[in-house]
């Protein structure tokens, strides 16, 4: 075969190079990890006793586990370039139901969790159904479904907080810090490992990214697009439900207004995560790093005496700067590649 190719080309065959480790590549892939280390180092030096203390780290990990779980939930449909705006409301509903079913309906805690998870599958399937069958834009479909769920939460609770009196110790113990290990972080780690295997090592995960890159090309390579998108929404629903159950166990009360405020941080973490590790696409490790960076850096700033509202400036600023830098880095890499080719 090569003898029919332009001889000038065959003469130039070079050995296969591993990805060139230029500075721009390094920054693009490990940028978030470096930022995380810098954050830890700077605040660790500024507040050697408090910042890196086990109690501070644990309280951050517990507090952020819900956001992290929700960010993982958001990541799955986002891999196919579909939005799921219902995750925040979904989390709220799961949280109020898991408390309410025990307190108001007298069900056992495992049964309550089971019911919430089944509902989560149904909600995810509903999102997927609206998007794949009715061809409703995912932005609109999931916003509508999310608002419905908010209605369900308020209807079920009558708009009142449900105080979790006499909750089983086993249930509240689900999110305790067990022998110095914050259990919520363990759940996040388990979900992350599973999701990492699926997205990075299984054909089904690659199919999700292929759909995200081009739905048409995905169809033409034999991927059953609708089935995959449906699955992505169901998985997103289940993880949102798990996040809600965790939140219920942590707060030990069900509050109908809780939920929506988790959507944007989860979204921000997912998008910020897409700037690193696998630049240009949402990915598990990037998402987790982003959650940690946002949480730890805010905690550090807080310990420096910043007011509560600084958090919002902080999160918004980091998102804009990080995404801006990553766009710049990808342009640099593309130029470098074009040069390398010539």
């Amino acid at each position: 075969m090569p003898d029919q190719v332009n001889p000038a080309q065959t003469a130039a065959i070079r050995p296969i190079a591993r990805s060139p480790r230029r500075l721009s590549d390094f920054v693009a892939i490990y940028g978030l990890a470096v930022v995380f280390l810098i954050v830890m180092a700077v605040f660790g030096v500024l507040h050697p006793t408090t910042f890196l203390s086990a109690s501070n780290i644990n309280s951050i990990l517990v507090g952020q586990s819900v956001t992290a779980m929700l960010a993982l939930a958001e990541m799955i449909p986002l891999a196919t370039k579909q939005f799921d705006l219902s995750v925040g409301y979904h989390l709220g509903m799961a949280q109020i139901l898991v408390i309410g079913l025990q307190v108001q309906n007298g069900l056992s805690w495992p049964l309550s969790i089971l019911i919430v998870l089944v509902l989560s599958v149904i909600v995810g399937a509903l999102n997927g159904f609206l998007v794949t069958r009715f061809k409703i834009d995912s932005f609109i479909a999931t916003m509508g479904v999310g608002t419905l769920l908010y209605g369900v939460s308020n209807w079920y609770s009558g708009g009142q907080q449900i105080v979790g009196m006499d909750l089983a110790d086993r249930f509240t113990g689900l999110t305790e810090i067990y022998r110095h290990i914050p259990l919520p972080a363990v759940y996040v780690a388990i979900a992350a490992i599973l999701l990492w295997v699926v997205t990075e090592r299984l054909p089904v995960g690659r199919s999700l990214y292929v759909i995200g890159a081009s739905t048409r090309a995905a169809e033409l390579t034999g991927i059953r697009v609708q089935r995959h998108v449906m699955g992505a929404f169901i998985a997103s629903g289940v993880l949102s439900g798990v996040a809600g159950i965790m939140l219920g166990s942590i707060l030990q009360t069900g509050t109908p207004s809780v939920g929506p405020e988790y959507l944007l941080p989860a979204f921000a973490a997912t998008l910020l995560g897409a700037t690193s590790i696998k630049p240009g696409r949402v990915n598990v490790l990037g998402t987790l790093l982003a959650v940690l960076i946002l949480a730890f850096s805010f905690s550090g700033v807080q310990q420096l005496g910043a007011a509560f509202y600084v958090q919002y400036f902080f999160n918004g600023g980091i998102l804009i700067v990080a995404v801006g830098l990553s766009v710049y880095a990808s342009a640099r890499r593309r130029r470098a590649a074009a040069k390398g080719q010539a």
């Binding site: 054909p203 089904v204 690659r206 199919s207 990214y209 292929v210 890159a213 081009s214 048409r216 090309a217 995905a218 033409l220 390579t221 034999g222 991927i223 240009g280 696409r281």
Partner: peptide, 23 residues
């Protein structure tokens, strides 16, 4: 529009789905 998976690697573009790699 119908072949390229923009933003994905050469290797992923070569083996995008299990229908192609037959797994």
């Amino acid at each position: 529009r119908e072949s390229a998976l923009a933003g994905m690697s050469i290797s992923e573009n070569l083996f995008p789905s299990q229908s192609i790699v037959k797994t």
